[in-house]
Design a protein around this nucleic acid. Sequence first.
DNA 1: TTGTACGCGTTATCAC
DNA 2: GTGATAACGCGTACAA
Lengths: 330, 330
Amino acid sequence: MPTISDVAKLSGLSKATVSRVINNHPYIAKEKRERVEQAMKELGYVPNPSARRLRGSLTNTIGVIVPRIVNPFFSYLVHSIEQSAYKNNYQVLMFQSNEKKDKELYFLNLLKNRQVDGLIMTSIENDWDVIQPYTEFGPIVLCNEYLTHSKAPIVRLDQAKAAYIGTKHLIDKGHTKIGYCTGGLFAEDGKDKDRNHGYQQALSEAGLSIHTNWIFINKHTIDDGKKVMRQMLAMDDRPTAIFTGSDEIAAGVIMEAKENGVRVPEDLAVIGFDDQPVAEIIEPKLTTIRQPVDELGEKSVEQLIASMNSKETVLKNIELPVELLVRKST
Amino acid sequence: MPTISDVAKLSGLSKATVSRVINNHPYIAKEKRERVEQAMKELGYVPNPSARRLRGSLTNTIGVIVPRIVNPFFSYLVHSIEQSAYKNNYQVLMFQSNEKKDKELYFLNLLKNRQVDGLIMTSIENDWDVIQPYTEFGPIVLCNEYLTHSKAPIVRLDQAKAAYIGTKHLIDKGHTKIGYCTGGLFAEDGKDKDRNHGYQQALSEAGLSIHTNWIFINKHTIDDGKKVMRQMLAMDDRPTAIFTGSDEIAAGVIMEAKENGVRVPEDLAVIGFDDQPVAEIIEPKLTTIRQPVDELGEKSVEQLIASMNSKETVLKNIELPVELLVRKST
DNA sequence: TTGTACGCGTTATCAC
DNA sequence: GTGATAACGCGTACAA
């Protein structure tokens, strides 16, 4: 494996000069620059990033952490981040935390050890106290998730409004018994807290109160959706509408509803979240909340690159609009 | 950021001893080992991977390259790889090539520069001549994709059989005009070549010949599927059945068919590929080819780890079974 | 404009 | 059992 010394030897110049060529320093004789470039090509030389990092220089690589890559929302988000980064000459390393604290920490260490220049976190597993110290080693941008005390640039969607308009829509359709699924624990400061608030606000404005057994926690997948439907079937007094928190869950609910002769939307109105492809595939087509995923990724990258360039942390809070898409499931 | 020297200083021992503790060397006095561990904890010390790599040691990280992470087949595959790797104490870095040669090369350099100990490639963009040299730097396992001359361990599905049984199934249902979508170019040695052969074999066994304008190339997404359906609608003589190459494409075909009053399966039989969740969501439910994605990922990891442990390349060719799932779209 | 020499953090090879 | 020390490949003062 050729090193900078090999290039130096072949070109008859010093390592320093070669290094200067690589890093586009000014003041190099054209003829020598060409000699170096020629030698690099000949040897198939590639700088060793480990050595560079050790030396403290940048990597032109950013990391993205996602909880579950199989969730289409995140795979599309990562995809969008990747595209934007590429346009800006950055490579992207993706990493799946699987919602585990230790895996998240491992990834944060990539930042600490200069494996990546910056980080985009699309989920947060650890407390902010443990994440915060890592910001010393490079910028961290939060993408669509945050904790109350987190102090980092954040690009997010207006989740509270999203849940609010979704729930409101169901109320406007005349529903008073409205179930709710969350990916978190329906806790005060945890995952999906903003959505929880939106849901609660819409209910309370309509003079409705919360039925704890219509709240389903830790739900993410199609299977989860089926389970939710089964749980509802077993209830004496069950919701006539449900806000699901993702199109996948909604799909599961609807599939199981059909199996059991529950008509959607007549017997049960279902509202999804994300406007994933599945929303238009399933029948009835899903009423859902559209989130501008592409823009979310794009802005996150922009924000991260901005933070990397200016040494001071630019504390920005970008909020993107969400939108209710009414189709046939409500 | 604490280094091994800081730990040495704090514990009153030498860097060498600290290093030995870190790397679980035998023959260290228990008392000193504990002193070191204590110091590490106190400082929040984490070994710097760049330095380790520079020194030539392993990273316990493997890389996975995928063409498009938004394709559910690949996100599930990556997920399965990630799970298996985790069980074996490996971390996984994912990387999306976007089907670009230069991005693939960038990622191969991670191997060259010891960023990762080994690589799983779920797609191949460059010629084998250019990939082959990288095997010198660490094992590469091909996963479900290969080139004719590639000489690397490979874990794959029997794609030829898959396409064969799918096409055969359509023939058995009485179809003679059978369209075909491929993600590649329908070329002799390129993407999906085995599927192409399976399709061709089934046709020729039935005495049917290939209609080039019923072959659709470079198809991957739902939108592609819709386009295919529109193209077929514009034909005077059109297929009565189509082998789509992915459930996503199939979904697109069916959606567009419904829009245009084409009945599935009566007017057009559609067969998918992958058995993704969408296959059971869409109506009619998709007849499709099930691939054991979990096993595919698992075996790839196993194979990679095996290659990393034994210095000689263990040239293995593992082939996993596929299965036809008949539902309602054929 | 170019070259020499040092240090980044770690591990392996020697000595002791 | 333990400690000095020399690499690993690179970038940058500093000198020339």
